[in-house]
Amino acid sequence: MFTYILLDCLSKMNAERTVSGVYHLLRGKKSSQTFQDAKVYRIEGYYGIYPDLQRETLDHALHELCKEGKTVWHDHGRMSVTAYGQGSMEETHMPLYFSGLEYSEAVEEFKNRLMLWIQIISNAVYRHAGYLPIVDKGPVQTWARKFYSERKAVLDEEAPILYKELRALLTPFSDTEKEMFVRRLTGGDRSGWTYSQLAEESGEPAWDIPLYLTNMYYYMFSEVSSDSSSYLYKLTEDLVKKEAFTSSSGKSIALYNKFGSIEKVAKIRQLQPSTIEDHLVEAVLVDPARNIDAFISREGARDISAAVRKTSTKRLKVIREQLNGDYSYFQIRIVLAKLQKGQG
């Protein structure tokens, strides 16, 4: 699954970004650049789906892909997918449920809550007291304590309900995935398994295991969060879709809307004007209907669109050269942001 996702990202990015872009995307880096790449190249589903990804793991996987002839390196750390690589993607395609840009945080939280809650309810059924919670994150534990105190009297009745629901939620997955999911869980009767144990048992590559599980949690999250009659709905109720832009961008955009000057906003926020420009590009990405006349003339926008079509790239440098350096990078980026809907 990991290599499939890498190939998908690389082929959509069309060697216009370095492989670090993929790394930041999968880890869900909170930066305007990552956010824009996700949108412009339509790989937003993958945003933040692999927060624990190590750089070595990525490099290793890319090395493998290259060795197998599925990708080739270009200069400056860019990589593109070969025809053979494209073909191999079609073969290994499987249902993916990721919608990371919107839900990576919510699903991460949901996953932790569910794992912890299963442990709590199972230990209650087994009448075990005094065990180590498998999730040690503060907010998740706080949530669990509250949830527990509301229903400690009915855990015995709820256990079979949760069991049935999970069982049903697992139906669309292969036996290997179900096995992985269930073995990962910690209950009153045994401990969950590590990723490497799971990899060993399933024969799948270790770097795929977290992705398999995350993919299942995305599926489950979307199933139960949209069904208020489900038991697990209660775990998702307060988890919301991510804000359209980062909070820093939100502030800049609001200030810009008020004062209409990049310099002024930069001064107020004590940031570089280029950062404010980033935020404004983000605003257009989120709302392509947004007016950009203040940044570029209609004619200029037409020139830039024409150059984009002609060079059929999203690489700023190439586009700028095509236009003989007549427009700034910011102007090109904002037009590209506006064009995003009509492309791909």
């Binding site: 256990a159 079979p160 179900k178 269930v182």
Partner: peptide, 10 residues
Amino acid sequence: WEERLYNIFH
């Protein structure tokens, strides 16, 4: 997996 899942809750 089915048996295992069952055992967590029963």
